[in-house]
């Protein structure tokens, strides 16, 4: 009946601390990076820079929400980048035709459809989420290219409301917070205090046990991937407002960082552990890291290697640390 009688090793204690207070550790890491930046380029850290960093971190954090939620169940959503791109492109091309409001609704429609498709493949056909979402991503890109040719004459306009949301500031703070704060609050609430959120953790922790407790896993997966699609679509809308130029590969560069943000944020890629708070800090860390790497003139290739190694290292570290004790 003993509870933790053995004296934990240093590694074990570090692991415990990381696990119990992942966000604290991450915030310390973030501050260290900011301090490093300030040392390398004195004076760079000011109110304007902070606003900019937050502005760029928001779409990333939203896309990383897709990864966080799916990773809680042991999955992943690699179609999120494509879905965001589709929504962004559709809204920009539909706005001149049908007006901003309807265009926003039309833009989210394919996002949910692709999400449902993912959910169908993962939940009902039991395809590995990674392969399923890679596949739907490919299909999505194909559809987008066909669509592009059909609207080639209409031209594209980023609706002003999205520009306001993506780029604008009010009193030094980016306007995107208007969307992001309630969004983050909703996710943080749902992950701990809604039945749906709890089931995500349950499926990730032990799918068989969840089934034995009466959880019909396919329902959860279907809803989860549809939700993930919707979030990716929203992220695309915010991002196109930030970049202001829709293209066929708009949000693709955000995909890997979105996975990395969730992993760095302490969400276990095996499922059952983690949460969105860490992911938000993870997105900030990556944005600051990006600035740092640009400052150091790190080539694109080295960045990708770094991302890969970060995912590998962090996942291994979490596995080893949390296995202690």
């Amino acid at each position: 009946m003993s509870v933790e009688t053995a004296r934990p090793s240093v590694l074990g204690r570090a692991g415990r601390f990381l696990r119990d207070h992942p966000t604290v550790t991450l915030i310390l890491l973030l501050l260290a990076l900011v301090a490093l930046l300030q040392v390398l380029r004195p004076g760079i850290v000011n109110e304007r820079w902070i606003g900019n960093t937050v502005k760029f971190a928001i779409p990333l954090a939203m896309l990383a929400a897709c990864q966080t939620l799916t990773m809680l169940t042991g999955g992943i959503d690699l179609s999120a980048g494509t879905v965001a791109t589709i929504s962004a492109f559709v809204v920009a091309t539909q706005a001149p035709l049908v007006g901003t409001g309807p265009a926003l609704l039309i833009a989210l429609f394919p996002a949910i459809i692709l999400g449902l498709l993912n959910g169908f493949g993962v939940g009902i056909c039991r395809v590995h989420p990674l392969i399923m979402t890679l596949g739907t991503g490919l299909i999505g890109i194909g559809c987008l290219q066909v669509y592009q040719r059909s609207v080639i004459a209409t031209g594209s306009v980023v609706p002003p409301i999205l520009e306001w949301l993506g780029t604008g500031r009010t009193g030094g703070l980016p306007n995107a917070l208007v969307l992001f704060l309630p969004f983050a609050a909703l996710i943080l609430w749902a992950q701990g205090r809604s039945g749906f959120g709890r089931l995500l953790y349950a499926l990730g922790a032990n799918e068989d046990a969840a089934r034995l407790s009466g959880v019909r896993a396919w329902q959860v997966y279907l809803a989860l991937y549809a939700l993930s699609g919707l979030i990716a679509g929203l992220a695309g809308l915010v991002y196109v407002g930030l970049i202001k130029a829709p293209s066929l590969s708009l949000a693709e560069p955000l995909l890997l960082p979105s996975v990395a943000a969730a992993v760095i944020g302490g969400t276990s890629i095996f499922g059952g552990r983690g949460g969105y708070a860490g992911t938000i800090v993870g997105a900030l860390i990556l944005t600051v890291l990006g600035t740092l790497l640009t400052l150091l003139q790190m080539p694109e290739g080295a960045r990708r290697i770094l991302f890969g190694l970060i995912i590998l290292f962090v996942t291994t570290a979490y596995l080893r640390l949390t296995d202690q004790g």
Binding site: G301, A302, I311
Partner: peptide, 18 residues
Amino acid sequence: IVVTLAMLFVWEGVALLI
């Protein structure tokens, strides 16, 4: 699947460096 996903990025980066 996790290891080779990470290595997907790594080899991609190596190719870009070359």
